[in-house]
Design a protein around this nucleic acid. Structure first.
Lengths: 146, 146
DNA sequence: CAGATATAGTTACCTAGGTAATTAATTTTG
DNA sequence: CAAAATTAATTACCTAGGTAACTATATCTG
């Protein structure tokens, strides 16, 4: 019976950690005029290059409607372009603009700083262990849900 | 430089896990007419008894406005009562109703089942280790922010 | 090939949770 | 004690992310 309480605490702690870290990220990004959800998209585009919205959704495990909203905001700010895909006229390729590439390093530094600050209270071995545990759990959960 | 990528992946995985598990919880609660945020309040009230809204906020690390909303919804559903506090007329004590106490065991079983299902792909030792790591990280983060 | 089915993206609307501003009651302080 | 500062709760409004319904294009099938 005791393990049910452990489960409860585990989910509670997971939830708190996620909220706390995304709040910290948003605070750090605010002076740059960006939100966490926007940064996630910019980060993926920088690494992967041009992607369709569907591919972005699949990569970030986000449904299509919030992705549309995030991208429309990035378009309005001039950091991203929607390009009509050649073959399939339904899909839109999303790519970073010159403006985004110019600012990217500044954004990246801010994010790396806040990430480092959030994690510097944990020894690197614990960070690695935490990541390994979280990652294998997530993989197992997603495997079961395909 | 490599650790920045690990950091990024760690936060990404944390975020995904939190979203996935709260989505699963909400799916499981839907047939009962409850949301995850409501369950969190009901759970604390069952354990701790009558609490003020401020105490609930402090316990769940949630700001006052969302707590007001969640409680108002629970009041409307008849699962919770707001009682004007005796000494301080600003504060409102929140307590479970008879209706909530009657349903509680059913809710608890549903939540325990979904929690168990989400965690049964991880061996208990990993669950314990994950909880310990998450918890110590959260404690360190909150200690720094007081 | 034409009709049915599937898919990419959008719109509308829902909950979760955050900040800023407001109100009413309580404390602090000159 | 009266005025100022603090605090519990609420209201209004913001982002994040979810589902349902819709549109337009692609693909599959009879």
């Amino acid at each position: 019976m005791e393990f049910m309480i452990i489960h409860h605490q585990l989910f509670h702690t997971l939830h708190q950690l996620s909220r706390h870290t995304t709040n910290q990220l948003n605070d750090a990004l605010k002076p740059l005029g960006l939100y966490g959800s926007q940064w996630a998209v910019l980060f993926v585009l920088k690494r992967k290059g041009s992607l369709t919205q569907k591919e972005l959704c699949d990569y970030l495990f986000v449904e299509a409607p919030p992705m549309t909203r995030t991208i429309q905001r990035l378009v309005k700010q001039g950091y991203v372009r929607q390009v009509q895909g050649g073959r399939d006229k339904r899909e839109k390729y999303i790519e970073l603009t010159e403006a985004a590439l110019l600012e990217y390093h500044k954004w990246e530094k801010v994010v790396n700083d806040v990430n480092g600050e959030l994690l510097n209270c944990l020894p690197p071995s614990s960070q690695q262990e935490l990541f390994t545990l979280q990652n294998s759990w997530l993989q197992l959960l997603l495997k079961g849900r395909d």
